[in-house]
């Protein structure tokens, strides 16, 4: 019995390790011509998960700044950034990946949009968040897959 548990644990650890190993670290993401070509996690994004990341206050909280006609059931939409309607008509997925990963690489240092997978952050970051991006590589891929569905 003990043996089996140990084997199982080892297998799980391997699997988790493998999924993780394919993530590109925030410092290693390659921006070329305002785009990021490769998936950050090496996996495809899941648009349904991405919609959750978009509205969840603890994850992307994108809705805090961006109106989104596709989320009419959500009460409050911010107006700090442009509305997301038809965003996939304006940007290629690789550009959307660059914007979400580190908006400053696309819009310049002055933008207020946070870099969601970047370690170029503000001063005095809360202790437990030091060295951590806001979203995981897979969450960025998910939100990008979701944005890619927003056509008009």
């Amino acid at each position: 019995m003990k043996q089996v548990t140990r084997l199982l644990c080892a297998a799980l650890a391997l699997q988790a390790g493998a999924a993780f190993a394919e993530d590109t670290g925030p410092a290693d993401v390659k921006f070329e011509d305002f785009a990021v070509q490769a998936s950050l996690s090496g996996q495809a994004g899941d648009a349904a998960e991405g919609a959750k990341v978009f509205k969840d206050r603890k994850l992307g909280n994108c809705l805090a700044c961006h109106q989104n006609a596709g989320m009419k059931d959500e009460l409050f939409h911010g107006t700090v950034g442009p509305a997301m309607d038809g965003v996939a008509d304006r940007w290629e997925p690789e550009q959307l990946r660059a914007i979400v990963t580190d908006a400053k690489q696309v819009f310049g240092e002055e933008t207020v949009m946070p870099g969601f997978y970047s370690l170029r952050v503000g001063k005095n970051v809360r202790e437990d968040l030091v060295g951590k991006p806001i979203l995981t590589a897979q969450q960025v891929e998910d939100v990008v897959a979701y944005l890619a569905t927003l056509r008009e």
């Binding site: 503000g122 001063k123 005095n124 970051v125 806001i134």
Partner: peptide, 16 residues
Amino acid sequence: TRTGQLNFACASCHES
């Protein structure tokens, strides 16, 4: 001065 993981200054919200 921008602070925190979200990288906002007071001006990000109350000025811009």
